[in-house]
Design a protein around this nucleic acid. Sequence first.
DNA 1: AAAGACTCCAACCGCCCTGGC
DNA 2: CGCCAGGGCGGTTGGAGTCTT
Length: 241
Amino acid sequence: MESCLVGLRKGAWTSEEDDLLRKCIHKYGEGKWHQVPLKAGLNRCRKSCRLRWLNYLKPNIKRGEFAEDEVDLILRLHKLLGNRWSLIAGRIPGRTANDVKNYWNTRVRKTNHHLRNYPHETKSIHKVKAIKPQPQAFKNNNKYSQEIPTIAKTQENVVEKRLCIGENHLKLPTTTTTMMCSIPTDDNDDDITWWQRLLAEIETEEVLFDKEIQSDDAGFSSGVLGHDVDQVWSFLNDDLD
DNA sequence: AAAGACTCCAACCGCCCTGGC
DNA sequence: CGCCAGGGCGGTTGGAGTCTT
């Protein structure tokens, strides 16, 4: 792996550097991070530039204290996804993965503080048993290929996020085209949906949520626990409304 | 007032995955 | 198929700010 090279600036960013990076992104757009330091005239490595933009400079980033509903969502999503900070942050508008991670590590993970503020969540401060389905093969010509395209084209990241919800062992597609066709099958069983497979695995591995969470969030975790695919999809699709 | 302890978060590090060749 | 570079992620750290004694 490549780390930031020797001779490049490290540490806190100055306001001048921020301005340079901002102007560069506005002019050339996001992406091509390897070119950004050169184009922006920054003596920083590409990763440093990317991180600074994504975690701090990007418009619409929300700063300050997490609201109660945001914290609640973090707790619930962390139960479902484990330490998949980028996925969790994806469902919390304006918050970055780093924000969520920092929040978790500094506040939520500290049992005493957590107990003080969320006494009803006491069971959640143990090691999370995230959903970890086995690797699945994908193929393109299944019946779902025709169902997602318009969504995928307009909400690429959302769709990716949805597919990622099955945790890190799934072979996730990276292009819009393949995302449209990303219902995994390994034999000739197109009738078995991706979600049915995932939920079956959840059942098999007894990856369950606390009863209290099930009972007070029927639209979300109970949908997963109850193996109600429609409810899960409904939850996952609410970004598109 | 000062020093040590603690908190918080921006930034870095190292790894994984993917696509191009 | 293997290698390499780029993008992205989660884990960890460093240091500035705040609190406590």
